[in-house]
Design a protein around this nucleic acid. Structure first.
Lengths: 255, 255
DNA sequence: CGCCGCTTTGAAGGCCTTCAATTGATGTGG
DNA sequence: CCACATCAATTGAAGGCCTTCAAAGCGGCG
């Protein structure tokens, strides 16, 4: 087989076979409905590192479900300062920033080799109107996105750099766990600078905090590999000044 | 007429007569569709100052469209520290935090006397499936919410206190303008502390910045009344270190 | 091997927070 | 109608945390 990129991009999608199905849009659908959803998806889209999924200002052609890999969503089309808004992991829905006026308000870039299911917007909407449980799942995933952003908001609200980094790590761990990866050890697909931008602090501060956590035995970091050694201790750091602090989150923080 | 509260609460809603209709869900609907949407809304809900619309943890019974007044959405059910996530103005859709698992992840409280249209969730969803342009408006308003939160995220990302307050004022002005109120002069329905919490800075800092803006002739503040005297100058402050900074926003910042 | 970028580490300085006290606005009771 | 209580907002001063600037490690890649 000449399994080149173009071929990979055209692999047929079958929700029933997808490991992420229970997390994704097809959750709760019967076989026939799942097939109809699968028919909607022209191909599994493949992105290489640093490749853009869409760019601010482009029309909203499709929504995307992340299958593998990760993305970074940011505002400020690179004309100067960017602002990282969030990171998307497998099972996340991407492109919702285009819903307001069917034009993307942010850009989204792959942090590593990433595969996505592309849902042509108009046809997807029509199908949601036909299949109630699909509409429900769409709204569920939209809600997840909104709560993730609430988490990010929570993160950036008057918290110390120490707490921000701790919350970030814990949230990432939780999200990796949800999509079937290890909650203890994982690789960061984003740079220190990207983490810093997301957390609203300086890159050097991220380095220092990670170093401090390591010295305290909370984590072990080596390059982009992170092992969480003491989740409870890290959680205490995340909660910081006040014990009732982490309650307010929508499930968890977006990262 | 004994126009008491209970009566007011039972006033029949007619989207066609609503001044906000073009901003709201009924935008783009024909008369018959508008009537069906109106039939869905059992009553215009009235909230007094500090009255809760819903509380974190409660099931999602309905989504709400703000008719008049304003609300504050926050996480952390009052058990200690709260985190203000955003403010809702007329034309905004409220309650989307409950979409993830049909249970509210935040609380929402009226900042002043506020009226809302209550959309029973299940029936509203069903109607969206039947009326394509209603589904479209719902997604449009959801997109607006998401972009508003992106704006808030942008706001809190590594910006000086000065820029945050300036962006906050400008965004509020813009949003008042959109819903037909004055863009130059308005009353803040939220306290300094609530602004501060939203902006991720200390209350005293908000006071100081407002004072500084006033001394510079950018605004005139008197209690909660604000007049924007020099929008251009204020915009320059908002953009601050870097001219290409405000580009990244989704339309405008949430406030 | 040597360049280049990312990360780490160090030191100085600034901005904002925190604590504290004053002022002002609001509302209640005498 | 005024005095007082109460709470929000303002203003001031000190201190801390993080940013910024700078330089040295470290890895990756040609």
């Amino acid at each position: 087989m000449t399994a080149r990129m173009m071929d990979i991009q055209r692999i047929k999608v079958a929700c029933g076979d997808c490991r992420l199905s229970p997390l994704c849009l097809s959750s709760g659908l019967n076989e026939e409905e799942m097939a109809r959803l699968g028919d909607l998806i022209p191909r599994a889209r493949l992105l290489q590192t640093e490749e853009l999924l869409y760019r601010q200002g482009e029309p909203l052609d499709a929504l995307y479900a992340v299958r593998s890999g990760s993305l970074r969503t940011f505002a400020g089309q690179g004309n100067g300062q960017e602002q990282t808004l969030g990171f998307s992991l497998p099972g996340d829905l991407v492109g919702l920033d285009g819903l307001e006026d069917e034009r993307h308000q942010c850009s989204s870039v792959a942090l590593e080799t990433t595969t996505l299911c592309e849902l042509p917007y108009a046809r997807f909407r029509a199908l949601c109107a036909e299949i109630p449980s699909l509409q429900g799942q769409m709204l569920h995933l939209i809600g997840k996105e909104i709560c993730a952003e609430h988490g990010t908001l929570f993160l950036r609200g008057n918290r110390s750099a120490e707490a921000r980094v701790a919350i970030f790590l814990l949230d990432l761990a939780r999200r990796f766990g949800v999509c079937g990866l290890s909650r203890q050890e994982f690789n960061l697909s984003m740079s220190r600078h990207e983490i810093a931008d997301y957390l609203g602090i300086a890159g050097e501060t991220v380095s220092r905090q990670l170093g401090a956590f390591q010295r305290r035995g909370l984590i072990a970091v080596q390059q982009r590999n992170v092992r969480i050694l003491d989740p409870v201790g890290l959680d205490a750091v995340a909660a910081q000044d006040g014990e009732a602090q982490r309650e307010g989150l929508c499930n968890g923080t977006a990262a």
